[in-house]
Amino acid sequence: MSTKLAEIKKMIFELPTTEINQLLKEINEEIITKDFMKLAETGFSEWDEPEEDIYDDENND
């Protein structure tokens, strides 16, 4: 375990139980959101065509 992770773990365990539960809830929501975003990306893969990248170049000028 890295030093930074050990420090974070120590700080978390010093929190009151209600705050730990809130933190866990927020972490779970973030994980679920990221999982849904990864899943959604697969539904748009048919739109991912290299020819369409020309529009990205126009906006970067």
Rank of each mutant, 00 (worst) to 15 (best):
Y55A: 02
I12A: 12
Y55N: 01
E41H: 02
K34W: 12
K9Q: 15
K9R: 15
I54R: 03
L5C: 01
N60A: 11
I8W: 07
I31S: 09
E26Q: 14
D57G: 03
I8N: 07
S45E: 06
E46Y: 08
I31C: 07
E41A: 06
E52G: 02
K34T: 14
F13E: 15
E52S: 01
Y55P: 00
K9W: 13
N60W: 11
T18P: 11
A6I: 04
E52C: 00
N28W: 05
N60K: 13
F36S: 04
M1T: 07
D35V: 15
D57Y: 13
N60L: 12
Y55G: 02
E14A: 14
K34Y: 13
L24W: 06
N59Y: 08
E14H: 12
T42S: 10
G43I: 04
K4L: 10
N59K: 06
W47S: 08
D35Q: 15
S2K: 09
I54S: 03
K9E: 14
N28T: 10
T3M: 05
S45G: 00
W47Y: 15
N21M: 03
P50G: 01
K38G: 07
E30C: 05
M1I: 06
N21E: 11
E49C: 01
L39V: 12
I20K: 08
E19C: 02
E19N: 04
W47I: 02
T3K: 09
D35I: 13
T42A: 06
Q22K: 11
E52M: 01
E7K: 12
E52W: 00
K25G: 12
K25R: 13
F44A: 00
N60G: 04
E26K: 13
K34H: 14
D61P: 03
T33P: 00
I54P: 00
D53H: 08
E41N: 09
I32D: 15
